[in-house]
């Protein structure tokens, strides 16, 4: 979005605020923090990143958004394989827990639906919820596979390089 002249200025739940500005003015990065941004550790980390020249835009749960002017050089939150792998591991753990939750809710709802007598199946709430949860689980599983693939590539690279 920044390259199109829309600069992200703040974040909230289901709310992204953009302002017009010179194209490519900022580089944005998202990180899944170890602790919630409102915790002591989370605040310490955010202060550290801000002290290093980045701007904290806000968070959605543990996902923190940062940006920095591109005129100050490239902006990355991680510069070595180990810290990238640790970040991917955090994302993977989150995705796995949501995947299991969606799968269980989906299977539970479908089981409820199909356990009803045939003539009582006119109520589609359980069927709809079950299908929706299983679809979400499938989508999350795809994301999980992509994260795992990225981790495998980085681990192979670490055998040769730091």
């Amino acid at each position: 979005m920044s390259s199109a002249g829309l600069q992200l200025v703040s974040i909230g739940l289901c709310r992204y605020t953009f302002e017009e500005g010179p194209p490519g003015e900022y580089a944005c990065r998202i990180e899944l923090l170890e602790k919630h941004p409102s915790s002591t550790e989370g605040r310490q980390y955010i202060r550290f990143i801000e002290g290093a020249g980045a701007e904290y835009l806000g968070n959605i749960f543990r996902w923190a958004y940062f940006r920095r002017k591109t005129e100050n050089g490239g902006f990355d939150l991680f510069s070595d394989i180990d810290s990238r792998l640790r970040h991917l591991k955090r994302i993977s753990a989150l995705l796995l827990s949501v995947f299991i939750m969606e799968l269980c809710i989906g299977v539970y709802n479908l089981t409820l639906y199909f356990s009803l007598e045939y003539y009582r199946r006119g109520f589609y709430g359980n069927l709809f919820s079950g299908m929706l949860c299983l679809s979400l689980a499938l989508l999350i599983f795809y994301g999980l596979l992509k994260v795992r693939k990225k981790s495998v590539i980085l681990r192979k690279e670490r055998i040769l390089h730091e």
Binding site: F48, I49, S83
Partner: peptide, 8 residues
């Protein structure tokens, strides 16, 4: 070039 997250 150390990135801030890695340095932390």
């Amino acid at each position: 070039r150390l990135a801030a997250g890695t340095l932390y």
